[in-house]
Design a protein around this nucleic acid. Structure first.
Lengths: 331, 331
DNA sequence: CTGTTAGCGCCTTCAG
DNA sequence: CTGAAGGCGCTAACAG
């Protein structure tokens, strides 16, 4: 592969001039034209590794997500990409799989590759350590919540309120025993959504005590198991708030397997799924602006690249409750 | 950030020795211990950019996929990751969005970053150009089909036969006017699946002529539009073979909007979706071994890293037809 | 506006 | 087994 010296020789200029042409610095038109011709002729592609070493930075943005199979993150990824493109950054996705170890490995990559920025949905509030990356001056933006290791720009949707609204809706529909299937205890989102669920129980009139709560793993299978346990328990619920879309799919499956269907047992889910209105009855869900969250996160990265010393900012985007048939209690 | 010179100084050895410790070359135990202590002390992380420049290679594997929102690719990504981890490679996903330009940009990144390998689901049979990447010695493995620009290792599922089987099934059920909603003409997969669909029409007894065919875009919205046009046409079909899972979701939605439901109009889809048995009636579909395809692709990359001169190999994995209620014609 | 030069951090001969 | 030294390809000072 040709390098800038080859190009310089072919164009009859110095390597520095080639570099200038490549980077849009001022060069006389005829020399610039010669350089461009030589580049084309030799099929020259600038070596980003060398450039990265020299400039101590790259133009790829790392997006470290918890679960590649979750539509929330894939929609978010699109938002990130669309903004990143405007700044000529490439986006690479890293799937941490909710595993702090894998996540650490990818943070290492981001660090060692000197990425232009990192957007991360932390696998753990306590374990995720972003101090190294930050120390190298790489902007980090957190999705949902900042890890404890350092306070950084954060974009979140209003998890607690969304879950609260969905639960209130189930209460108003007249369901009596509402259970919650939520995610891992280490997950900030799981905890927030559970809090909203519990607050709705406290604040309704009359207040309700001790609703059933199942901790699961945000996966389809986990949702299935949790729902199965609830349904097979001594006092099964007559409605359930599921704190993510994948677990909701599993929960529905568990119901179908027992010939139970909403809204006999009411179901509301947190998060979107393009199949939520394909199932019958259609699934009530809390809409999360995933795409916009991605956009906002990418914009925060760009902002911090230009002004690194701003105070960490938190952007909270609203959720909205989309009521469909799965939660309309037959009277 | 500390570098190997700092570590060398702290450990009282030469930079070369530090490098040897880092890379597992033979070093006397006590010096090695001193080096490791110094690394820990200084929080030293080897700079991969510099290493990459020197070694002309990196340990990240690029996975360039057509659509991040398609569960087929996310399942495939897991297969790739699981194998890559065994070889201590990191996987980064790049979403080309079925756009040859974006794809070219990511191929550029792979080239410029000297990635350890590239697994790509080509956006276009003719336009995707992998010659540059190959010329730099980066192993490329194609999903579905090798681009015309160069013959490389390929992993595919048996698209044509899967579509053939699904179509035969619809024919056997007694559907008379079976339409096909397929993907872009540039997509190899779309073409193969359409071929299977057409072959089933030719080979059945008596042969059928001129089934309706809609070209769409493999997206939910595209599937919706295509199905809407079919249903609103003068001679609407009584069954439809949809060549991917996302378009199937859209097609179902278009039917629901018109109060039509399978199996009155039979539906069979190519590809899995975890919601396919949540919709009612459950969706007949051609199962594609996405995870295994990912594994196989990653294994081909690893194989070619060790033996670069083997002949290009094509691995074809079988599909299987999963018959559910959406295609069981009421008699 | 242009050319020369000195590294960015690491690995890898080559001597010892 | 160890250290010295050069260079991977590029860019940013510094002169001119």
């Amino acid at each position: 592969m040709a390098n800038i010296y080859d190009v310089a020789k072919a164009a009859g200029v110095s390597p520095a001039t080639v570099s200038r042409v490549l980077n849009g610095a001022r060069v006389s038109p005829d020399r610039a034209a010669r350089v461009r011709a030589a580049c084309a002729e030799l099929g020259f592609r600038p070596n980003r590794v060398a450039r990265g070493l020299r400039r101590q930075s790259s133009d790829v943005l790392g997006l470290i997500i918890a679960d590649i199979e979750n539509p929330f993150f894939t929609a978010l990824a699109r938002g990130v990409e669309d903004v990143a493109r405007t700044a000529a950054l490439s986006v690479v996705l890293c799937n941490a799989d909710d595993d702090p170890e894998k996540e650490a490995a990818y943070l290492d990559v981001a660090l060692a590759e000197h990425m232009a920025g990192v957007i991360i949905s932390p696998a753990s509030v306590t374990e995720t350590d972003i101090t190294q990356v930050l120390a190298k001056g790489i902007p980090v933006v957190a999705i949902d919540h900042s890890p404890e290791s350092a306070q950084v720009d954060t974009v979140a949707s209003d998890e607690e309120r969304g879950a609260y609204a969905a639960t209130c809706h189930l209460i108003e529909e007249g369901y009596r025993r509402i259970a919650c299937i939520t995610g891992p205890r280490e997950s900030w989102a799981a905890v927030q959504r559970l809090r909203g669920f519990l607050r709705a129980h406290r604040e309704c009139d009359p207040p309700r005590a001790r609703p059933a709560v199942k901790y699961s793993d945000f996966r389809v299978r986990g949702g299935y198991r949790a729902m199965a346990e609830l349904l097979d328990s001594a006092q099964p619920p007559d409605a359930v708030m599921v704190t993510n879309n994948l677990m909701a799919a599993g929960a529905l499956e568990a119901m179908y397997d027992r010939d139970l269907r909403p809204p006999a047992i009411g179901v509301a889910a947190f998060g979107d799924a393009f199949w939520s209105h394909l199932v019958r009855p259609a699934l009530t869900s809390v809409h999360q602006p995933a795409y916009e969250i991605g956009r906002a996160a990418a914009e925060l990265v760009l902002r911090r690249r230009t002004s690194p010393d701003l105070d960490p900012q938190t952007v909270v985007l609203p959720t909205s409750l989309e009521i469909r048939d799965s939660s309309r209690r037959p009277s």
